[in-house]
Design a protein around this nucleic acid. Structure first.
Lengths: 368, 368
DNA sequence: CTGAAAGCGCTTACAG
DNA sequence: CTGAAAGCGCTTACAG
């Protein structure tokens, strides 16, 4: 319970002490006195209502050319910019769209963001909210975000119990949130399809025993990846072992593999499937340290198909998930919602597919 | 010039048609009617002023225990959450801090963000604004952001002319913005130091002719990296060539290298230094395709020391830039500014250092 | 200890 | 074509 003013508080207000620079000396990025619509109105000799009409381009048949001209001059002279807060309060909401994601600094999101941006266009302002590393977005975080009155919310990879305690107050679309039961529309990857292709691929290569290195966050997509892969692997007669996990981090994953391999190797494991490519990079690093050849001693595969996976030596076999399409689909769903139109389809499923590279396929050109 | 209501407009307002779900059926993440302080006040039998005091924890000696209790019950029953917009308008500003970065989906930013978050604490809400891929933040973007009345702004890697047309209206700190002349405090990497170490390293290895693969955005840090490296290389008697560039993208960089190598090889180039590790990954990929051995046929190095650089085969020699420290320093500078305290030092310089790996050093253990 | 009132900066019917 | 007024949801002196 933060206290907001006075003393050590005064958190987000500028508190001026005697020795400090004043607003007018513009010491360190301090505010120049902000121009308001009232100042513009006074200068142009009109009312604030007229200023508002001009700013919002609603002058057709309502404001004379001369007045428009005068207002625009005043705006230019004063460097006036509409105050988003006053505007939002009057309109009943902002034009901000917030994308909530656990891991935006993952290269995967470059494409997601680009997709969202494209679908949203210029009418909305896209802002991102990152949860703490490795944590899924929680209801409390979202509630804080709702308090900003965003025009809409895009929530990526929420925890499975995410919506239990959340009364949605803005249009909201869920991304990559399999297994979340919600009235909000969602866009997901058909990750099970790629997971099955991967199991088939490994079975076809002659592996008999495969290990699964899981991600330890409670995200639905990771559960789905694992379960779909393991189920198909068993169907194909593979023995499976899934007793290791790590957060989405190269070093953590390397450590998990270092810990598990002494169990896995004697048990006859010849392939390791990782919940994400990032995990796979950790396995790569540790395997190299341990003198294991990939794929000869151990085959490695991941999910996501990050850009680096096509580049590494060997290339990493991975289930490709179409990130840009995810962003586009979610963005346009949300846009319809925000504009009061029904969404075409409340649950969109995007295809995934296996990219085979040298980390599993000894005959792949990119082999080390 | 968007028009905001009616017809095809009504951009960020929900426009209800006859066939649509109503607010009360909560069709797709539509708003449940939002509880206001007035509703809480009515229910608790107090004034909104009292509700505000309770919410902000300013009750000491001002509100009786019974009243507090009653207000809190009403808040709970109604699920009331303070409206950030109304609150910000009344207070004169929000508690939002916006980090503007050209490339947040770069693994580099995971640490920057964590650092900022740590320094800012819980009193501020951190949101990220991403510019279009490969574009540096522009004054227009920032102006839109200012209109949100953020408590503060953190601007990463702005273009060199960034501040020319910008009247700062909120506290602002610049990150990784060498060469930007501004009254705003800045936190930079001493990237020149690492660049010089790299030149020394290559000279020591016996290279006589090195190429520099530049980044094509006009960001100050890239110019500094290049100039510092090339200057020292020349001092060390190396011949340099710097006639190639690409955006920060593996594929684009691979293409640039494919284009340049046929010139460079005959000219005797034996080492390629890249503006970023991402560029270097592209060179890796293309070199492999072309059958070049690293470092035997061509040594490769980069800047940033991304996590993947320690993992690749060979490991990538890179100038490490302390991302978390950058975020921490910038965050705490901004915090002081927002709280009206003078910053300790208006220009902070963080050390960089060379990480030598197998991509340049044939004797490195991680060599392919 | 509590509330009425003013005000933050806009936008939008409404009246003229 | 234009403006006075109300209102969006809060917070903060101020008066009691």
């Amino acid at each position: 319970m933060p206290e907001a003013a006075g003393g050590a508080g005064g958190r987000y207000h500028r508190v001026m002490g005697s020795g400090e620079v004043s607003k007018h000396t513009n010491g360190y990025g301090q505010s120049a006195p902000r121009a308001t619509a009232a100042m513009v109105a006074a200068r142009a000799g009109v009312s604030t209502a007229t200023v508002s009409l001009v700013i919002n381009g609603k002058t057709a048949g309502r404001v004379s050319a001369d007045t428009i001209e005068a207002v625009q001059r005043a705006i230019a002279e004063l460097g006036y910019v509409v105050d988003g807060i006053g505007s939002s309060l009057a309109r009943g909401g902002s034009n901000i769209v917030i994308l909530v994601a656990p891991d935006v600094a993952n290269p995967f999101y470059a494409d997601v963001i680009a997709g969202v941006r494209g679908a949203l266009g210029d009418d909305y302002q896209l802002l991102l909210s990152v949860t703490d590393a490795g944590k899924t977005p929680e209801p409390g975080d979202i509630r804080k975000l709702f308090s900003l009155r965003p025009a809409g919310l895009l929530v990526d990879a929420p925890g499975t119990d995410f919506l239990a305690h959340l009364a949605p107050v803005s249009p909201m679309v869920l991304l990559d949130a399999p297994g979340i039961d919600s009235t909000a529309p969602s866009v997901n990857f058909d990750v099970a399809h790629g997971a099955r292709e991967l199991a088939d691929h490994l079975a076809g290569l002659g592996h008999r025993r495969v290990a699964y290195l899981d991600a330890v966050t409670g995200t639905g997509t990771f559960r789905l990846r694992r379960d779909a892969f393991l189920a198909r692997a068993v169907e194909r007669g593979l023995k499976t072992v899934a007793d290791a996990g790590a957060k989405v981090d190269i070093a953590a994953s390397a450590a998990a593999f270092a810990d598990a391999w002494p169990r896995w190797a004697p048990a006859g494991v010849t392939a390791v499937v990782c919940a994400t490519d990032t995990h796979a990079y950790g396995v790569f690093a540790q395997a190299r340290r341990a003198g294991l050849r990939i794929p000869d001693d151990v085959a490695v595969a991941g999910f996501d198909d990050l850009p680096y996976s096509a580049t590494s030596t060997p290339g990493l076999t991975s289930v490709r998930l179409p990130a840009a399409a995810l962003g586009r689909a979610a963005g346009s769903q949300l846009r319809r919602l925000m504009e009061g139109m029904p969404v075409e389809e409340s649950r969109v499923l995007l295809p995934s597919r296996l990219m085979v590279r040298g980390s599993t396929d000894p005959s792949h050109p990119g082999r080390a």
